[in-house]
């Protein structure tokens, strides 16, 4: 047994990823119309979307260690849908902040982006995710060759930025962000050789 799965099994898991990432959004839309987001629904919505994005980010990084551990290379096919869903959630998180919290007041948005380090960190992470999402078109992958890998290694940076953004955004209680940061660091440590190789590729 090589442990290789047949294609249908892998696409079954892909369907599961799509459903798993979509269902909470459907729940969210019901919660919004029902007024179930509590007294300060904007804050709650932004937090919910941000937490979803960071979990999807960690799941994306969990795929290759998992694929190696169970010797199922086909699992790596899940990285693309997970990564794209992470981008989708991060975009909704960012859009909710822009439109609902700051009411598209561009002067305030500009000031906040410049003045608040944690917002700048989150915005930078989102910009990188945007680049990665745009270049995730399969045709571009071939065309970009080695540069594609170089670019997509930036996900290592994104996970650090995202955890930092989370940590600084909370009023108090560092334990929850600390747990996410520990998981992120463990996932990076597991692939430290790949990370080091990626870092060297910029020399």
């Amino acid at each position: 047994m090589t442990g290789q799965w047949k294609k249908p099994a892998a696409s079954g898991l892909q369907v599961a990823v799509h459903i798993g990432a979509l269902l909470p959004l459907l729940w969210l839309s019901v919660a919004i119309t029902d007024g179930r987001l509590g007294g300060d629904p904007v804050k709650e919505l932004i937090h919910y979307l941000g937490m979803g994005a960071i979990r999807l980010l960690l799941l994306t990084l969990l795929v290759s260690p998992l694929a190696k551990a169970v010797h199922v290379g086909q699992l790596n096919r899940l990285r693309r849908p997970l990564g794209l869903w992470c981008f989708a959630w991060a975009t909704l998180h960012f859009a909710a902040w822009l439109a609902l919290d700051l009411g598209l007041d561009w002067s305030l948005i500009g000031a906040e982006l410049v003045k608040r380090t944690y917002i700048l960190l989150g915005f930078s992470a989102w910009l990188v995710l945007l680049m990665l999402a745009v270049t995730s078109i399969p045709a571009l992958l071939k065309q970009m060759g080695r540069n594609w890998k170089k670019l997509h290694g930036l996900l290592y940076l994104v996970v650090i930025l995202a955890c930092w953004h989370f940590w600084w955004s909370v009023k108090s209680g560092w334990i929850e962000p600390a747990v996410y940061t520990a998981v992120a660091l463990a996932l990076l440590a597991w692939r430290y050789q790949a990370v080091a190789r990626w870092a060297r590729s910029f020399r």
Partner: peptide, 18 residues
């Protein structure tokens, strides 16, 4: 870590009334 220049008023209504 955040601006104090403005605030979200919690009044009647849901998400889009904020």
């Amino acid at each position: 870590r955040w601006s104090q220049a403005s605030e979200r008023f919690i009044g009647p209504g849901g998400l889009f009334a904020v």
